[in-house]
């Protein structure tokens, strides 16, 4: 479904240039659950941002199904993010002074979903992450783990085909992390392709495949027995 060929990402230019991703080749099939691991600064978030159509590679090609994402206009990229992808950010990125419910309902505005349906779907997304009792809380009134779950609810409320998650358990204890991972695994079981960055081997073990990144190159990969 997703195919990256010879992807490079270089920040800056001349002497100050940093070569963050180097000739990445990666293919992800529909329904896969891929974990990306690697030391801090190895380029994991950079790779996810490219997969999430938030950032452009310096060179190389990105195809989704048969579409060449590199050739997409800004509008087409927005539509790709709107209808195909769900993104969970490393730092939650929730809207301040905006309730959990409205945060989760927000992506649906851009899909043209009516207010009532938005509310219903946001509510059910929030209850699927166990936050039905906190729908009217603002982010600053929620714990880190609860904010993380609001961010997850926002990513899945649009029923995306691909869920991209940057350290979805980064702020959670082991107990909570495993609950979240069960949740993400259930999304995956329902047919959503998941690409997830993590630091921890036991979190990666929820995936069907783990890719190890180091200094911007794929060092090795491992397929898990289910």
């Amino acid at each position: 479904m997703i195919k990256l060929t010879q992807i490079n990402k270089i920040y800056g230019s001349g002497g100050a240039a940093t070569h963050v991703l180097k000739n990445i080749d990666l293919e992800i099939k529909q329904g896969e659950f891929v974990a990306i691991m690697g030391p801090s600064g190895s380029g994991k978030s950079t790779l996810l941002n490219i997969l999430g159509a938030l950032d452009e590679p310096s060179s190389g090609s990105y195809t989704f199904l048969d579409a060449n994402i590199n050739s997409f206009s800004k509008e087409q990229l927005a539509l790709f993010r709107r209808y195909i992808l769900g993104f969970i950010f490393q730092g939650f990125n929730l809207l301040k002074k905006t309730s959990a419910l409205e945060n989760v309902a927000m992506p649906l505005i851009y899909q043209g979903v009516g207010a009532n349906e938005r509310r219903e779907r946001a509510q059910s997304a929030l209850s699927s992450v166990g936050l039905e009792s906190h729908i009217n809380y603002n982010p600053n009134e929620l714990s880190g783990g609860q904010q993380q779950r609001v961010a997850i609810a926002r990513a899945i409320v649009t029923n995306p085909q691909v869920l991209i998650a940057d350290e979805p358990t980064g702020n959670l204890d082991t107990q909570r992390s495993h609950e979240i991972m069960e949740l993400i695994r259930s999304f995956n079981k329902n047919g959503i392709t998941v690409i997830m960055v993590t630091h921890e081997e036991d979190i990666a073990s929820f995936a069907t495949r783990t890719i190890y990144l180091r200094d911007g190159v794929i060092e090795r990969e491992r397929t898990h027995a289910l």
């Binding site: 999430g52 509008e75 927005a78 993104f87 950010f89 990125n93 992506p107 851009y110 649009t158």
Partner: peptide, 16 residues
């Protein structure tokens, strides 16, 4: 700015 980034990340177009 950040809010704008978030909205664009979930699919808002420039015109939105």
């Amino acid at each position: 700015t950040r809010e704008i980034g978030i909205r664009m990340a979930v699919g808002a177009m420039a015109k939105d």
